[in-house]
């Protein structure tokens, strides 16, 4: 660089290198307008150190694969502009919490999705043999509205990383899986309400939630798993009192 040009604005990013044990390594990256945290990570991987491991796909907040911990907060890096998080010119990027680190910024999401299965977070058609041709679901009904409120989850794991109860109790099913179960409990076409509620009430289920709303605060889709879990608490108690649990 010639001495006369003004120096390019720079950003120091510290990126986690290693697995469960490792360290934050500083990199100097040119600061650009409208740069996202994912741009920064990609720059480091393409220009500075090609061995850096991380994940992304869509870059527009659709797939949920780019979630990382940015200055201590779980976020979609493709939808997080550096300006928003780098007040003091420093950005620290680590892998999501509560999931095993595969390498650097990539975590193993298998335990997260296994819990969706354990929570029975899958649709069970009540009309499996297809005798009815068309399910009528009034969009304005209370159940449908409750299901719709949580249906847009894309399984990014941000809420799961934000949840302290998951950190304390690695069995806890977590906000995303329970939110999914709540959409199914409210789906009039689902035939396994009892199974869903029994799974949600188990000793790693909805009653372990402290309702402290970290999941809701950080969900990039603006969903409210805390409210879904509160709904599950209510419904499991109702079915308990009816002798159905």
């Amino acid at each position: 660089m010639s001495g006369r040009e003004p120096p390019e604005p720079e950003l120091v990013v510290e990126i986690w290198r290693g697995r469960e044990s490792g360290e934050f390594v500083p990199y100097r990256v040119a600061r650009r307008e409208n740069q996202t945290v994912l741009d920064v990570v990609s720059h480091v991987q393409r220009r500075i150190d090609p061995t850096l491991s991380y994940r992304f796909a869509c870059r527009v907040g659709m797939c949920g694969s780019c979630a990382m911990t940015v200055n201590g907060i779980p976020r979609w890096t493709c939808r997080t502009r550096v300006d928003r998080v780098a007040g003091n010119g420093r950005v620290r990027i680590g892998p999501l919490r509560n999931m095993p680190v595969i390498r650097d910024l990539a975590v193993d999401m298998a335990p997260f999705f296994d819990k969706w299965q354990r929570a029975t977070g899958r649709f069970v058609p009540s009309d499996a043999d297809n005798r009815r041709t068309f399910a009528r679901v009034p969009p304005g009904s209370r159940e449908r509205q409750a299901a719709d409120a949580g249906i847009e989850c894309i399984g990014c794991g941000v809420c799961y990383a934000a949840c302290d109860v998951v950190a304390w109790n690695s069995d806890y099913l977590g906000p995303a899986a329970l939110n999914r179960v709540w959409t199914l409990v409210n789906d009039s076409r689902d035939g396994a309400r009892r199974e869903h509620l029994a799974a949600a009430a188990g000793d790693a289920g909805c009653h372990q939630c402290h309702s402290h709303q970290a999941c809701m605060s950080y969900c990039p889709k603006g969903l409210n798993p805390t409210a879904a879990i509160a709904g599950l608490k209510r419904e499991t108690v109702k079915s308990l009192l009816r002798g159905e649990l």
Partner: peptide, 12 residues
Amino acid sequence: MTGRLEAWLYVA
């Protein structure tokens, strides 16, 4: 079963 216990404890 564990579901019932947890739900009872919650109610209690």
